[in-house]
Every structure is written in structure tokens, then in C-alpha cells.
Design a protein around this nucleic acid. Structure first.
Ligand SMILES: NC(=O)c1ccc[n+]([C@@H]2O[C@H](COP(=O)([O-])OP(=O)(O)OC[C@H]3O[C@@H](n4cnc5c(N)ncnc54)[C@H](O)[C@@H]3O)[C@@H](O)[C@H]2O)c1
Ligand SMILES: NC(=O)c1ccc[n+]([C@@H]2O[C@H](COP(=O)([O-])OP(=O)(O)OC[C@H]3O[C@@H](n4cnc5c(N)ncnc54)[C@H](O)[C@@H]3O)[C@@H](O)[C@H]2O)c1
Lengths: 235, 235
DNA sequence: CTCACTTTGTGCATCTGTTCACAAAGGGAT
DNA sequence: ATCCCTTTGTGAACAGATGCACAAAGTGAG
């Protein structure tokens, strides 16, 4: 049994909480732009699309930054969340695979706005290498290791075809990168200590299709399985 | 007082399972292409990057489609998962906002391969309307309701700037669409019964940055709290 | 048939995350 | 100071997801 001392700042922030902090940050940024100085958990929760108790519990993992009876100071909370997420420092990102998607990502402004800087674009196609995109030259994939080392790249975005992704991933992790964002529809295998997050459009659509089918089945009094049908939905 | 019923509308299939089915499907498709006829939970689990007990439990929600001592028939399992996800029918998808990202999505082949068909591209910019992309004319956003109705669009992808997303969302839901995939960095509010899934690059990067910072802190003997640091973590 | 072997399907313990509901804390008025 | 009002921070109950471990169910050999 592990006993935790409640006073020390608990660095064990739940993964689910980490995933929501950027959401709160976005909502807070919008508020500060509208000149809002303080905000209650109720209002912030609504802006972020979550339950207010959840929001308070999430924030309590960072420390006690609210004032009872008043709420949270917007600026201060932005600072605390940013610090916790590591956004007070600058992160150099490399994009590997400069095709349709890679180009869109390279041109995307929302990147830079939060401490992420596109430091390199890499591709294997000679026709693409040398192109100037968003102020950067596309470099040859052979330069991968050099570029990572020289520019202090610590996050790599993989936007190559699926067939090339694992190979790129291997080189990138061998070069010491431990954070990868993968857009290719493959399961990457990586050494321990490397974090991979994936974005898969096709999976999202399939999940939507599943629920959509469910809704359709229901309306048409579709294939309901005997006693499976509990609990109607309408209020 | 708005009462929200916790809906167990999914014929008993846990949401976490639904999110993994497309992964299994992808692995199975690869196997069938390589001529594999049957597969054990152990092998399929490895290909999908999950634990084998979890895989078996997931599949058990669909029914008993395995043979003890043998494994699963690849073709049959593909069919069963496809049917469960609703991929045996054709889904018409509309993409609203044909900028950098919208174009990349429209040109993406991985879409079509699984029963999703891009049926319309819509934009508000007169310079973009009329462009021919991936065999489709970009239509004016004014046509939104007509296009949705005429072509039986049931899933809409929003790839407009953040400022326009809620407005587009309102029109789309008013037109009867109940499944939305949102790329804009805003929390969409929708009527009950509408599913929204979001893809947010910036959030993914922030989560990676959090963990990256954590690793860096650790190596430099940073603010580690005595006995706190024993958990090995990987992807 | 029985026996040896493989692999599924699932009960159960455990872990993680969510939500409720309220005591405690702070602000402001008098 | 004392009282009232608001809102935080959190204990505790609940809900959901994971993974171990094994009985049950199947195959195939003899
Ligand atoms: N385009 C989309 O909307 C979309 C959506 C979801 C997923 N994806 C996935 O993202 C990836 C990229 O998609 P895309 O549409 O941009 O493809 P694309 O073919 O347009 O671009 C891929 C690029 O990667 C380069 N490349 C190939 N092998 C490489 C290697 N070994 N090293 C470096 N670069 C290499 C190619 O030269 C090309 O420029 C694919 O895996 C695709 O499945 C794309
Ligand atoms: N490009 C990326 O890599 C990327 C990554 C993550 C998120 N996003 C988000 O995706 C969205 C699109 O990004 P983008 O880079 O393609 O932007 P973009 O500016 O290139 O394209 C946006 C398009 O939407 C159109 N549009 C604007 N208002 C509209 C309306 N009311 N109805 C229909 N169309 C409208 C514009 O005419 C334009 O063609 C943005 O919200 C962005 O934050 C983009």
C-alpha cells in the first residue's frame, strides 16, 4: 500500500486530466482576450464542455489556485496550466512526409501559437525536396539525424504513407526522439520510454458510423435483441 | 433542471471497445491480404497493439466468433466487425471548409476504402467555389441544406476556421445530420442525439509536450519527489 | 473412444476515471 | 466582529476499463 502525502505537489497527474488541460487553456485564452479577469469553475467548465466537478478536480491536481467564493484568476491559471504542460518552453517539431497532409500541417498557424515551432520538413521524394513551404526548405530524409541533433527537435510528426512510417519511426527514435505524433494508419512499435500519439481520421469516421447506424436501427425499430432493450431515452 | 439520462444505447458494446474495433479491422485486412486464413487472439492482439485478453473481451461483445483451440477465421471476423461498425453500407460524407486541411482530406484515399464516400465539398469563399478537387466541384455553402438532403449526407467533416465552426455546425444539425467530425479548435455545442468527435492536433502536441517535459525533469534529477518515480511508461 | 494440447470466453480483482454533495474558506456588508 | 452568500476543494460512492488466470471447448493423434 502506497501512502501519499497530501501536502507535497502530486506529480502524478491522471492521464485523463492531462488530456483536458489544453481544453481549459484554450477556453481561458479566449476569456482573457475578451477581458475576463476571473472565472468560476461553473463557467469555465461550460466553456470547455465538461462537468464543473471534474474541472475542479482536474485543477486541484495542479494545486490550489482558486479562491473560494470568487473563482480562478484567468491569467494566473493560464500560467499554471502552461507551465504544467511545458508550454513555457519552446518545442522544435519536425514534420516527416510533406505530401497533402504534411503541407497542410506545415502551413497551419495554430501550431506556433502555443510554443510549438516547425523546425524542419523532411521528405524522401527528390521532387519535393527543395520546395519552400511556410518559410522552410524541405530537406532530404537522409538529413534526418543531423537535423534532429542540430535543431534540437524533440517532437516528430510522421505524415508519410503507412508503408514508410515504421521505418521513419525507427530512425527517429534511434536519433533520440521520444515523442511522436503519427498520422499514418499503422501501429508503430517503439522502445520503452517513447510516447506515440496517433491521429486517425478513418477510425474517427468508423466510430461515428457505428453510432449513426445505432440511431438508424433504433428509429426503424430495427434488430432489437429481445430483452436487451432497457431504458428508453426520451425525457 | 435538465435531466440527462445516462444512455446505454449501444447494444451493450462499451465505448472503449468500439474505439478499438477499427484497429482490429485494419490488422485483419492486412492479414487477409497476406493470405492468412485464421488468427489467434495472441497474434491479432499483437498486430493491433493491444493486450490479448482485452482483444478477446472486445470480440466477445460481438458474439462468439472464435473456435477454441484454433482462433478466429479472418474473413468472417472482418465481416462481423464491419457489420457491427456499419461499414457494410455506404456513408456519404461532406467536407465543409476546403482550405489547406480540407483539400488534404478530400484527396485522401484512405477515406473511400472503408465505405466512406466524399459526396460534397463546400466553402464560402467565392475564389474556392468552383474549384475541382479529387473529382468534385467545390460548392457554395449556401447549398449546404440542399446538398445534404439530395445526396443523403449523414456525416459532416468541419474544416473551417474556428470562428465559423459553430455556425456551420448549427446549420448542419438543423439539416438533420447527427454525426460530425470537427477539426476546428472549438467546443461545438449540439442538440441531444448528435455525436461530435474532434481531432485536435494542438491538443495532441500539448499532451506530448507534457510527457516530454516530465522525462526531461526526471533525467536532470529535477523536482522528483523521493520515492515517486518508479513507474516505467511506454506507448 | 481417451488423452494431450491449444486457445477461447469470462469471473474476478484491480485500477482509473466520473459525479455527487457538502464542509470549509473566503469576500463583503453592516 | 458577526452574518450571509458564493464557490472551492475533496471524500466517498459509483461507473467503467483492464488484465490475470483458468475452466470450458475445441482439435487431432492414436
Ligand atoms: N491526407 C489526409 O487527409 C490524411 C488523413 C488521414 C491520414 N492520412 C495519412 O497521412 C499520411 C500522409 O498522407 P498524405 O495524403 O499526405 O500522403 P501523400 O502521399 O500525399 O504524402 C506522403 C509524403 O511522404 C513522402 N514519403 C514517402 N516515404 C517517405 C520516407 N521514407 N521518408 C520521408 N518521406 C517519405 C512522400 O514523398 C510524400 O511526399 C498517410 O499515411 C495517410 O494515410 C492522411
Ligand atoms: N491545417 C492544419 O494542419 C490544421 C491542423 C489542425 C487543425 N486545423 C483546423 O482546421 C481548420 C481548417 O484549417 P485550414 O488550415 O484548412 O484553414 P484554411 O484557412 O486554409 O481553410 C479554411 C477554409 O474554410 C473556408 N470557410 C471559412 N468560413 C466558412 C464558412 N462559414 N463556411 C464554409 N467554409 C468556410 C475558407 O474559405 C477556407 O477555404 C481550422 O479550424 C484549423 O484550426 C488545421
Amino acid at each position: 500500500m502506497i501512502r501519499r502525502l497530501p501536502q507535497a505537489r502530486d506529480r502524478g497527474i491522471p492521464e485523463a486530466t492531462v488530456a483536458r488541460l489544453p481544453l481549459y487553456l484554450r477556453a481561458l485564452t479566449g476569456m482573457t482576450e475578451r477581458g475576463v479577469a476571473t472565472v468560476s469553475s461553473e463557467d469555465l467548465a461550460e466553456a470547455a464542455g465538461v462537468n464543473s466537478a471534474k474541472l475542479r478536480k482536474d485543477l486541484s491536481h495542479l494545486g490550489s489556485y482558486g479562491t473560494r467564493g470568487v473563482g480562478y484568476d484567468v491569467e494566473y491559471l493560464i500560467y499554471q496550466i502552461s507551465r504544467e504542460l511545458g508550454l513555457t518552453q519552446d518545442w522544435a517539431v519536425a514534420i516527416v512526409g510533406v505530401g497533402n497532409l504534411g503541407r497542410a500541417l506545415a502551413n497551419y498557424g495554430g501550431f506556433v501559437s502555443r510554443g510549438f515551432r516547425v523546425a524542419a520538413l523532411l521528405d524522401s521524394d527528390p521532387d519535393v525536396v527543395g520546395d519552400r513551404i511556410a518559410g522552410l526548405n524541405v530537406e532530404h530524409i537522409d538529413e534526418l539525424e543531423t537535423v534532429i541533433a542540430r535543431r534540437g527537435v524533440s517532437i516528430v510528426v510522421i505524415a508519410t504513407p503507412a508503408a514508410a512510417a515504421q521505418q521513419v519511426c525507427d530512425r527517429v527514435t534511434a536519433a533520440g526522439v521520444t515523442s511522436i505524433l503519427n498520422f499514418a494508419p499503422v501501429v508503430l512499435s517503439v522502445p520503452d520510454g517513447v510516447d506515440v500519439r496517433k491521429v486517425d481520421l478513418s477510425i474517427e469516421l468508423q466510430i461515428l458510423a457505428f453510432h449513426e447506424q445505432r440511431k438508424a436501427d433504433r428509429e426503424s425499430g430495427g434488430p432489437v435483441m429481445a430483452e436487451e432493450w432497457q431504458r428508453g431515452e426520451s425525457a
